[in-house]
Design a protein around this nucleic acid. Structure first.
Length: 260
DNA sequence: CTTTAAACCTGCTGGC
DNA sequence: TGCCAGCAGGTTTAAA
């Protein structure tokens, strides 16, 4: 159940395990993907780039693999000679070089595109800036909050819309709103300058903190302030965290820190 | 334009 | 042990 940080981390692991050498093995687990074997065998991986929750793996053949983990997909990697951990999940695609293997399980949203036109993919065509992209800075986020057209949409809905910013999912939504002290029913139109600044900062800081904390081995994991913590004290004011539903998804908030 | 509901993909958990 | 219902850190589409 990955959001941006998990996908960014997967991208690094995949790139690290495959290296730049030619693919020595391509195994597919979906009939639809059979053409990938012939198309990619012997190809070199040029880059593994995340785009929000999508992953773009480009090859020397001029092809780019689009993959999306959806709710349940998972990438596993292993060094050459080492076995992938055993699993009951369905293997969808496995790529191997002399250096290692990267394998995608369960997710079915996998397509091979010409690199030239992969930006025309229906998902990629409509995504907004990636909150984990190092080139996206506070000024860019603040400007987008000022000019984004849907001024009267609830922030709860907006944050999950990948066309607004991509890479934000359900746990990040809750943590971002809490960090900015904003109620999910607030709208862009209603924000004061200070509130807009707080939201812009949280949009960048929270996903980056999640990526940072879980990436370092041995370091403590990113801990949620409110997500999944119904009834437990808000880390800021001590009031009990509340679980609600917002746009059909569960949402946690502190009604004291995030008043309407 | 905005919100809600349903559908779809798959995996896991808990109850019976 | 086996089956089913319900939920899920996602997205798209249709309908209200």
């Amino acid at each position: 159940m990955p959001e941006g940080p998990e996908i960014w981390r997967a991208a690094a692991r995949i790139a690290g395990s495959l290296g730049s050498g030619p693919l020595t093995s391509v195994v597919v687990g979906l009939e639809r993907l059979e053409p990938l074997e012939g198309a990619l065998l012997g190809a070199c991986v040029l880059a593994v780039r995340p785009r929000g929750k999508a992953l773009l793996t480009s090859f020397s053949t001029g092809h780019t693999l689009y993959s999306h983990n959806q709710l349940y997909g998972v990438w596993r990697v292993a060094r050459a000679g080492a076995a992938l951990p055993p699993t009951t999940r369905a293997l969808r695609l496995s790529l191997s070089t002399a250096q290692g293997t990267a394998a995608l399980y369960s997710a079915t949203d996998v397509e091979l595109w010409p690199t030239d036109s992969v930006h025309e993919h229906p998902f990629l065509q409509r995504v907004g800036p990636d909150v984990l992209d190092p080139d996206v800075d506070l000024d860019a986020v603040t400007a987008r909050l000022r000019t984004f057209p849907r001024r009267r949409s609830r922030l709860g809905a907006l944050l999950l819309d990948q066309g607004f910013f991509c890479g934000v999912g359900n746990y990040l939504r809750a943590e971002i709103l809490w960090t900015a002290s904003l109620h999910p029913s607030r709208t862009l139109a209603s924000l004061s300058d200070d509130e807009r600044g707080a939201l812009a900062a949280a949009l960048l800081e929270v996903p980056r903190a999640s990526l940072r904390f879980r990436s370092a081995r041995g370091e403590r994991r990113f801990t949620f302030a409110v997500f999944g913590r119904a009834g437990r004290p808000c880390p800021r004011c001590g009031e009990a965290v509340v679980r609600t539903t917002d746009g059909g998804r569960r949402l946690y908030l502190c009604v004291t820190c995030q008043p309407l």
